[in-house]
Design a protein around this nucleic acid. Structure first.
Length: 133
DNA sequence: AGGTTGACGTTAG
DNA sequence: TCTAACGCCAACC
């Protein structure tokens, strides 16, 4: 697994995220078979070209905690990600510290069987919110 | 070769 | 629910 292949695998997994849903860096890492490379998933997205085709829905990847990671005090990456998510219908809330958060119980997308995911089987993979609500 | 960084995750209190 | 601490691994200096 080279760096280029890692990036390609990350992009392929990220493109699987359905519209209006979000997942975590760790889950992308999990889907490509490298669960402990969660940090590098973000790194791969950072180096991704915004003009690639098919387009990369990078905005659908956030922290496992449901928070949009801050790229840094002087950057507006988090703000752009928030706008991109809201444009898809994902509701983003703002915490006290100005952090953007998404309710994973509603918009979370964490299937373990993406390889067998079919358009007609999507009804049986979103049972993550069975705990409450 | 060693120390620090980073679009993270999990566990403990 | 939120904060603090530890673990993780490649890139960078």
């Amino acid at each position: 697994m080279d760096s280029a292949e890692f990036h390609a695998a990350v992009y392929e997994a990220v493109r699987l995220i359905p519209l209006g849903k979000v997942t975590s860096y760790g889950h992308i890492a999990h889907l490509i078979g490298m669960p402990n490379h969660s940090r590098h998933v973000g790194q791969a997205l950072k180096f991704a070209d915004p003009g690639v085709n098919p387009p990369l829905p990078w905005q659908r990847v956030i922290g496992s905690s449901g928070a949009i990671s801050s790229r840094g005090p002087g950057t507006n990456g988090a703000q752009r990600q928030r706008e991109a998510l809201e444009a898809e219908g994902v509701e983003v809330t703002v915490g006290r510290a100005g952090e953007f958060k998404v309710d994973m119980r509603i918009y979370g997308w964490f299937p373990d069987n993406v390889e067998i995911l079919q358009p007609e089987d999507q009804d049986q993979v979103d049972g993550e919110n069975s705990s409450s609500g």
